[in-house]
Amino acid sequence: MSMDKVQIPWTDSDGKPGFWGALHSLPRRVYHSVFRSRPIPANDLERSQAVAANFFFHLHSAKVQERTLRFKTTLGLGLLSLYTFVILVVTGILLMFYYVPTPVEAYDRMLDLRGAVFFGTFLRNLHRWSAHAMVGLVFLHLMRVFLTGAHKAPREFNWMVGIVLFLLTLLLSFTGYLLPWDQLAFWAIVVGTSIASYAPVVGDELRYVLLGGDSVGAEALLRFYVLHVAVLPVVLTTLIGLHFWRIRKDGGLAKPREK
């Protein structure tokens, strides 16, 4: 199958670009240096290319089973979990610009966010409610996967990754809970970390390392902050990547057996 000769747009009929020709085609050259497909694909091959040649889209296969797109199949819960996480990352990074993880400053910064920072209240609210939503959605997603039998072979490993992702979500939410340094935060963490000390053998040591001392104080706030904004998000993002990659490697969403 021979390709038709395509006229490269910045050449004249002799194949030599003139100055104006080159200038005229500059936007096009720049566009094609970035994107390898047209903005609106015209045929099936281009549609496939649009997905396969795009860094962000290539999580998808070029074609997907129609079944997986039906709302009933997944209720969209996995995607919803991802979206709340994306919102949390964006709002969280913005909030970091104003937050100071010390007992002296933290609470005042909360008040500043509420009173003095433009858009501050909204971003904090969005971060807070998205966090609650994410915990709920991730759990609903877990329920969906189990109730549709999607955890069974060959998807056992991805199910386990999912369980770890759920636990990480809880940990992220829990570490973030302390940061406003108000009564609600403080005592929830006092109670929560004391539970850790009941773990056999390593319990007391675990609590000591987690809090950086014997009680919830400046060290604990700093540690929870680092866990919340750096350690856990990086681990979570990495595992989300693994989770998505495994969906494809395990053959897409679980599908009913043929009769």
Binding site: V51, H60, E66, R67, Y83
Partner: peptide, 21 residues
């Protein structure tokens, strides 16, 4: 199986879901 192109069928749905969220 009955398949559709990810572009635009899946991607537009995903975008719509994000906007909704």
């Amino acid at each position: 199986e009955k398949q559709v192109h990810a572009w635009p069928a899946a991607l537009t749905r995903e975008l719509a879901l994000f906007v909704l969220t």
